[in-house]
């Protein structure tokens, strides 16, 4: 009986194991990298019917987010503006009424135009939670969470894109450590806000008013701490009694 298996087959099982393990490692690494909203959603930058430039309107002109997203403080849904809102400035005889970029708006609004259809501008939604996750905008903006925490620096975007993953862990990170994101209520739509901009005296006066503690006591307790975001957020969290829910029913019904 000759050798049925040549010599090289001695190493075959080991090689097979190594190859399969290597392939498995590579595939799982690839999945871990791509099968998350950090990869699938971040960077989504669809083409819009009107190339609306947020950096021009919100940054250069200094418009408030709420001029267009007018019901974000009342509604769970942050609304897109009605076409009338665009028309207020871009209607006949106003700012750039004939711009070719505004064709979709004229179709929706300009009854004298031959292209008039009356159909609203079909903006493409970029930030979209799954239909079983209920995010309430008003609950967040009225409790010191700025637009920028979830949407990124929209005021610097020429074309809006998905900047943050908005995954479940992204939500939970904040719900577990909300002091990281809270800021004074009048700065919600100021996307460039920094903790250094806060007027210390006014801030402590506000806290004292909210908590019933003395201004001097509050300042003294903080005298050895740096006046940064975390400190501001922590104080606001306490003053407003913020307890972000972490159970399933907070977002899923």
């Amino acid at each position: 009986m000759a050798n049925l298996f040549p010599r090289w087959t001695n190493e075959l099982p080991l090689k097979a194991v190594v190859c399969v393990a290597a392939l498995g490692g590579i595939v799982s690494g690839l999945v871990a990298y791509t099968a998350t909203p950090k990869y699938t959603r971040v960077g989504y930058m669809p083409e819009q019917p009107i190339p609306f430039d947020h950096s021009l309107h919100a940054q250069q002109l200094g418009m408030d987010c709420r001029y267009c997203h007018s019901f974000v403080e009342q509604s769970s849904h942050s609304n897109l503006p009605a076409d009338q809102v665009c028309w207020n400035c871009h209607g006949p005889g106003k700012v750039k009424p004939d711009s070719p970029k505004l064709q979709a708006l004229r179709e929706a609004m300009d009854e004298s135009s031959e292209d008039y259809t009356g159909r609203p501008v079909a903006w493409v939604q970029i930030h979209e939670t799954p239909d079983y996750a209920y995010f309430n905008h008003s609950a967040h903006v009225n409790r010191g969470v700025s637009c920028v925490e979830c949407h990124g620096q929209v005021n610097e975007m020429k074309v809006v894109y998905h900047a943050k993953p908005l995954s479940m862990s992204f939500c939970l990170d904040c719900h577990r450590n909300s002091e990281k994101v809270l800021r004074p209520l009048d700065q919600i739509t100021n996307l460039d806000w920094k903790a250094e901009d806060v007027d210390k005296d006014a801030f402590y006066a506000y806290l004292a008013d909210k908590t019933g503690k003395g201004v001097e006591d509050l300042k003294k307790a903080d005298s050895h701490k740096t006046f940064d975001r975390l400190l501001i957020g922590g104080h606001l969290k306490e003053a407003w009694n913020v307890h972000p829910p972490q159970d399933c029913t907070a977002c899923h019904r």
Binding site: K38, G43, S75
Partner: peptide
């Protein structure tokens, strides 16, 4: 595959699309 965060214009893929998009009336 590219890298995370690069810009793209096509609708994001949903890897487990179970009930992500339901046939119900949604705001706007």
């Amino acid at each position: 595959v590219g890298h995370r965060g690069q810009k793209f214009t096509s609708r994001p893929i949903e890897i487990f699309p179970d009930m992500d998009r339901q046939f119900k009336l949604k705001t706007q």
